[in-house]
Each structure stands twice: as structure tokens, then as C-alpha cells.
Amino acid sequence: MDWLFFFEVSLAGLGFGALYALTAVAFVVIYKATRVINLAMGEMLMLGAYMFFGFAAALALPIWAALILALVGGALLGLILERLVIRPMLGESPISVFMVTIGLSSVFIGLVEIIWTAAPRSLPSFLPSDPIFIGDAFVAPKTFWSFVIAAVVIAVFLVLFRFWRGGVALRATASDQGAAYGMGINVPMVYSLAWGVAGLLAAGAGVLLGSIAGISSEMGFFGLTVLVVVIVGGLDSVLGALLAGLLIGWVESLAGVYLGGEYEHLVTFMILMVVLLLRPWGLFGTREIERL
């Protein structure tokens, strides 16, 4: 066995895994704060990438401006969705809310295809392209830099989540909504905050993913893999999202190279089935105590 090659494949997988982790964190933030399983996460990510594409390629704005606008756009998208669609569904069964997000994903795909057609496109490149070596192993520069950026963003997010007032309010709401409300936390505001932050993270992940793999109206599929990631990690665990993201990225990369490209996602969904059967609350998730 060629260990150097194995190492290179693993590094590429971890690079992709970092993007899974980033999106998975966005997913978990929404779930923790609002208990919504957002199936449109992948499509929010796709919209972020297309916004970047629109600003940078069509409007020919400088890269940094397009990036900022795409991130702001992603955050706004999250806020608008929460206010217009999710909040009116408060108190409905989780299944209805889940189905609403399925509808949203379909809306976003339709929108993107109407505006930009279904054809795949590539994003203007903005990441450094000098080849990177770790020891003897070669890492594609885009993968390397997107890993670094994702890692930095996640680190910043974790610090905010832990120490910033908004982060604390979010965690308080996640652990006990009623108590948080009683302590004077503005719960509706926390809902908006969670969706806004998630929208921003998703848009960022979308731009990174697009710059590695190009964009198309099918890139929302990424969101389904992220769904697997959060289930494996545990729906309400940030740590689980991070580790499972890296794990799934790594496994997919190995499966893709050693078994063949068509096995990449098959392996992911096989893992999902096994986890659902053996440990449905995930590796780090909370096992809910059922009450009457």
C-alpha cells in the first residue's frame, strides 16, 4: 500500500470535511435554537455561492466586496426565512416545519435555475494557488486554504458561541426555552440570530465549496451529506458536527479513490443507516428522555 498516497487522499478528505463541519455547525445552531431540522441548508449554501458568483462575475465587483456581500446576503436570507416562514410555523408539528424546509429547498433550486440556468459554472478563483506540501504529501492549494479558512471561521464562531452575550443567549435558549424567556432573554431575537448566523456560515461554506468544486443548481446535494454529518455527530452537538464532518469527509475521500467515485455517497448513506439503527441520537448527541 502506498502510504504517501493514502496520506494525500486523507488530507484532501479532511479539507472537504472541514466544509462539512462548517455547514454542519450552521445546521446545529438552527437545530439547537429553534428545533428545526433544516433540509434547505444545502440550498442556502448554494444561494450563497451564486450570490458571490453574481457579484463577482456578473457585476464585476472586486472579490473582497463580492465576498462580503455574499456573506451579508446569506445572513439576510437566514433572517428573512426565519421571519417569514419559520416563525409563523411555531407550535406546528416538527414534521410540518420539516416539510416546509423541503419546499424551500425546491424553491431555491428553481430560483437558481431560472436566474442562472442549471449549467455548472466555476467561481472566479481568489485563493492562493501555490502548491502546498505537508512533508512529502501534496495538498491541492484550494483545499488547503479552504480548510484553513473554515477552521478559522469555526474557531471564531466557537469563541463567540462561548463568550459573547448573543452566544450565551443562544445556548440558554437551546437548553431551556421557557427558562431563558423568564430570565429576560429575547427568544424571538435568538431565533433570528440563529438563522442569521447559520445563513452567514452557509454562504461562506458555499463560496469555499464553489471555489473548490464549481457551482451548479445541484450543489445543494451537499446539504444532504451535511444532514448525515449532523445525525452521525448528534443533532444538538457542535463538537459532534465538527468531528463527524471531518470523519465523513475523510471516509468519502477514501471510498471515492479506493472503491470508485460512485461509492462516495453510497458509503455516506450506509454510515447513516448504521448510525440510525445502532445509535440514532448520534455520537455526541443527547439521548432524549421521552415524556408523556
Partner: peptide, 24 residues
Amino acid sequence: SALLSPVRTLVFGLLIVGFLLFEP
């Protein structure tokens, strides 16, 4: 005619969201 498929996708989604919100 190229718009047909995307518009269909969009309308399916809008119908799901719209009915769940307004006429569950």
C-alpha cells in the same frame, strides 16, 4: 421553454410552503 423545468421546481416548492403556511 427552457424555463419550464425550473419554474416547475419553483412552483412545487411554493405550493408546499404556501399550503403548509396558509391552508395546512
